[in-house]
Every structure is written in C-alpha cells, then in structure tokens.
Design a protein around this nucleic acid. Structure first.
Lengths: 209, 209
DNA sequence: GTCTATACACGGATAGAC
DNA sequence: GTCTATCCGTGTATAGAC
C-alpha cells in the first residue's frame, strides 16, 4: 500500500514476504482490487474491471492469480497481517490498560477510515464471497488479532473499569468501529480521529476525567 | 412474515397495505428472498433460486415483479415499515428516557436476531446492490426510524446520563447491534435477549444500579 | 508477462401457449 | 398466473502468439 510506504512496520513485513510490495505488479493489483471490491462489491467487480484498473487485459490477470477468488483472499490475508502488526505496535507503546485500549481503538479507526480502509471494509462486507476453505485460513489469522484486544479488555475488567463483559465489549466495538466507515468523514466536519476515539472512550465510560 | 402473524401491529400494517400479507404469493416470495439474499448475497442469488424457493418457474416471477432489483427494494421497504411501527410501540410503553432507550435496544436486537432478522441483515449488507434512486426512497423511510432513537438519546443527554454525543452514540449502536447477527446465538449458550440488552446498557454506563 | 481471440456457462428477462 | 422455450448479454477462464 503505497501511501504508508515509509512505515517501518510495513517495510519489515514486505521483507519477510508477508505482504506484497505495493509498487510490485501484485501489490498494485491488490490495492486496486480492494478499492473496487469495496466500491462495487466482489460479485459486481469483473475480472475486466480488475485488469483495467492496473492497465492490462483480463487474460493477463490469470498469469498472477489462478482465480478471481484468490485475489479476494490475498486482499484479506495481507490486510490482517498488516493490521495485526500495526495494532501490536500501537498497544506496545501504551502503559496502562486504559491507554492500551485507547491505542487499539485509535489504530483500528485509522485502519478502517485511513488508507487501508478499503481493504478493511472488504474484510467485513465480502466475507460471504470467500469459499469455506479460504474462510478457515483467514479466521486463523484473525484469532491472533483478536487476542490483542481481549487481553487488554480483560485487564480493564479486572481493574473494574469496564461496565460490560470483555468478550461482549469487544464484539460491540467490532461492530461499532467498522460501521464508522459508512458515516465518518474526517475531511468535512470538525471531528478528528482523536476526537472520534475520545467519543468511543466516553461511550464506554472511560473518558479522561 | 408468518411467524409474527398474530402480532396486532403487523395486522394493521397489512390492513393499510403497507406490508404484504405473509400468506399471499407476494409475501411468501419476499420472505424467501430475504432469506436467500442474506445467506448467499443478492448478486449470488439468481431469479431461478428465488422462483424455486416458492415453487414456481423463473419466468413466472416477472408476473409479480418487473425486475430482480424490485424484489430487493420491496424487502427493504417493508422491513423498515414494520420495524418503525414495532419500535414506536416499544418506546411508547416506557416512561423514562432510560427505559425508552432500553426498549429501543431490545426491540432492535429482536428485529436483528429474531424472525425478521434475515430482512434486517439484507438492509445492512445489500445496500450497495440497490440502484441510487431506490436508495433515496429507502433513506427517506429510515429517517423516521432514526428520529425515534435520536429524540430518546437527546433526552438522556440533557439528563447527563450519556457519556458521548447522542448522534455518535446512535451510530455506534447501529454498528454494534447490527453486528450481533454475526455472533449472537441465543439457542446455544446462556445469554438471553434481555441479558444481551443489559450488557449493552452496561457498556453505555446505564446499568440498573 | 502481456496480448488477442474465444470457449463456454450462466444469469436476467421476454414471448406466447395453456 | 404459471408454464416452456429461448434470446442475448456478460462473466470467468483458457489457448496460443508475440
């Protein structure tokens, strides 16, 4: 993903070949695919659309990917890998459980509404279009990601700072945060990403007093 | 929707021809369509699937609806009409703003996870498949529904019982509640609908003390 | 690694008989 | 109001030249 190219976390993932270099043919295709899948949906996006987006003919696509579904799966897998690393880094910088949670919320809001947002939306809305065997693979990666959240929420719960159950709170947050993509428009209107994060914390009764 | 057939609110809506009688040919088709659209997605559901679900041939479908999209739109329109009426009734029975909010949350959770849940999921996940002109029509109906929520949340905010902004809180709740359809399974496991409602209230810092 | 050309199946929608 | 038959466009994927 070209925009966050300077990010050292992305750089190390590329070096380990866990995500594609965004300047490579494969990387550029996956970025365009994420955008198209989010805008039109996976089913309504044709292989001709995908090829045109990177300036090749549809037949040439199948030199890089065996099937259209393989492209969807690659978008999802690489997105989770990148976001797990970003999340881990964000949480590591915070001290208290409360600050860890705030860092996670802010990082997830940034993933959803920032430059990886297209791919994050695909992860949520195009799940059904993935074959069952691919779903199982992606789910495994998701577990690592979710454990980051759960351990932080469980710590807060121990400290009696959380109103509801940690598991349920995480599920509520998953829905609430991913839904922001349908309405949050940072460019027009005053609410910044930090302001939105504050609102989420306030909703949970964890506002800075 | 045959299951809630005895519901007097549904009966009056049918009498006013605002929703189809679930025992009519049209009503049965819309129920099956909601189920198929949720399970497979709108695009992956063929007119042959729809016809087979009600035991007719695909050509015969077009005697009832001019296009496939018209079926999707009808599912959405009738679902909003029914749920607005159910919501209004739930809110009217409560006295305090806090109890009104609880009634709205419980009613929406019931819509999402109960017998109209298939249609509610379609409303969230198949939005993009609706043509723009149809989207505008459905959006108008949604406004009425949303105003029910906003007036209650604004009242709570006046009473200083709400941590975050009312508009933002509603949007967070929209995401959080609709997401329950992906994980909440009342049949297996102890959490009842009332228990889940309590958890949501607790998350908002509005637990019964 | 990309091109052109095309196979081949499937999906939405229509026509006209009953 | 449902049937059968069918049109026709579109979509995924392949073949083989360059």
């Amino acid at each position: 993903m070209a925009f966050v190219n300077q990010n050292p976390i992305l750089q190390s993932l590329i070096a380990e070949q866990l995500v594609s270099d965004p300047s490579s043919a494969r990387g550029r295709l996956l970025n365009e695919a994420a955008r198209l899948f989010r805008d039109k949906g996976y089913e309504r996006t044709t292989v001709r659309d995908l090829a045109a987006a990177v300036g090749i003919q549809s037949g040439s696509l199948f030199h890089h990917f065996r099937t259209k579904e393989e492209i969807l799966k690659a978008v999802m897998v690489e997105t989770i890998r990148l976001n797990t690393a970003l999340m881990q880094a964000a949480a590591d910088q915070a001290d208290s459980a409360r600050e860890k949670l705030r860092a996670l919320i802010r990082a997830e809001l940034e993933s959803i509404n920032g430059q990886t947002g297209e791919a994050m939306a695909v992860l949520v809305y195009e799940w059904r279009s993935l074959s069952e065997s691919s779903q199982a693979e992606v789910l495994e990666l998701r577990d690592i990601y979710e454990n980051l959240w759960l351990s932080t929420l469980q710590q807060l719960s121990k400290e009696h700072q959380l109103g509801a159950d940690p598991f349920i709170t995480r599920r509520m947050l998953t829905g609430a945060l991913s839904w922001t993509v349908t309405w949050y428009r940072p460019e027009r209107g005053g609410l910044t990403l930090d302001g939105l994060t504050d609102q989420v914390m306030a909703m949970l009764g964890l506002a800075q007093c």
